[in-house]
Every structure is written in C-alpha cells, then in structure tokens.
C-alpha cells in the first residue's frame, strides 16, 4: 500500500483500467512494471484468459493521480497491450470480489 490510511484509500478517487493483452508469461511484468518504476501503486489486479486463451484481460484498480493520463499512454505503447479502456471506480468488476478480501 502507499502509506495512506485505510479510510483515505477508500475515499480517494479511483479508476478501473481494462486492458486486452497478448497472453504470455511476461505480459503482466510489462504492465505492472510501468506502474512500479514510477512508484505508482496498483491497488487491485485481476487477470484471466479470454476465449481460446490467445489473449487475456487485465483489470487494474488504481488511484486517480495527475500521472494517470501519462500511464494510459504508456500502457498503449506496450507491444503486448491491444487496448486500454478507462472506467470509473464504481465498475462492478472489483466490487463483486470484495467478499474474498474480508
């Protein structure tokens, strides 16, 4: 976590990013490396293969930050990232998971 209290984490603005990626062993490192090398915390990660498994979908829950627009551009530059979509923090994908993290 990034040093905020639990309360601050829950109240600070969040964004959900949805990435379609090529499914291979290094793709997750490429994606999270962009964040970690900028000391930008990823709050939640979800990844599963799509269809026959040639591609995967990665869902990232991140804090809103002045750097977010730059992060999205950098994600779009990755060879293995096919598309990036931004959603609001209220996107249901992470909400449904909350019961696993109680």
């Amino acid at each position: 976590m990034d040093g905020q209290s639990l309360f601050e984490q829950r109240t600070s603005a969040r964004t959900v990013l949805e990435l379609d990626v090529v499914n291979h062993p290094g793709v997750m490192s490429h994606v999270v490396g962009l964040f970690s090398r900028r000391a930008y915390n990823v709050e939640g990660i979800l990844c599963m293969p799509v269809g026959a498994g040639a591609t995967s979908r990665i869902w990232l829950l991140v804090n809103e930050d002045a750097r977010l627009a730059q992060m999205v551009k950098q994600l779009e530059k990755l060879e293995d990232v096919l598309s990036v979509r931004r959603h609001g923090a209220d996107h249901e994908v992470f909400e449904r998971l909350e019961e696993f993290f109680r």
Partner: peptide, 14 residues
C-alpha cells in the same frame, strides 16, 4: 535477462 531488460527495451522476447 528478460526481467532485467523490460524497463530498458522497447520490447523484449524470451
């Protein structure tokens, strides 16, 4: 090598 070169390459392959 793959992991080491992720942040310093445009792209890499194993």
């Amino acid at each position: 090598t793959y992991g080491l070169t992720i942040p310093i390459t445009k792209h890499n392959f194993l």
